[in-house]
């Protein structure tokens, strides 16, 4: 998984994406903020959404309660 550790928690990259997604943002905005290639952001977003740490609405990604708890 690009952004999820074997224990199911976000890894370092996952945490960075979650921090960025505290405000709704597009994959492009996340890639720009974190200075990452799009493909890594897309793969990471998919992992984080599947694991319930992020949700997507109309092309923007936003952290979930589970995501906020993971950052505590």
């Amino acid at each position: 998984m690009a952004c999820i550790s074997p224990d199911g928690k976000p890894n370092l990259l996952g945490e960075k994406i979650l921090e960025t997604a505290k405000e709704p943002c597009t994959p492009e905005e996340i890639a720009s903020t974190l200075i990452l290639p799009f493909f890594r952001v897309r793969g990471g977003l998919r992992d984080l959404v599947e694991a319930g740490y992020l949700k997507e609405e109309r092309g923007k990604y936003m952290i979930t309660d589970k995501g906020l708890q993971a950052l505590e």
């Binding site: 998984m1 690009a2 952004c3 290639p37 799009f38 493909f39 890594r40 897309r42 793969g43 990471g44 998919r46 992992d47």
Partner: peptide, 13 residues
């Protein structure tokens, strides 16, 4: 080596 990726993750590049 950088996680699970799809070919479509590269669209735009």
């Amino acid at each position: 080596t950088q996680g699970k990726l799809k070919l479509s993750d590269f669209r735009g590049s």
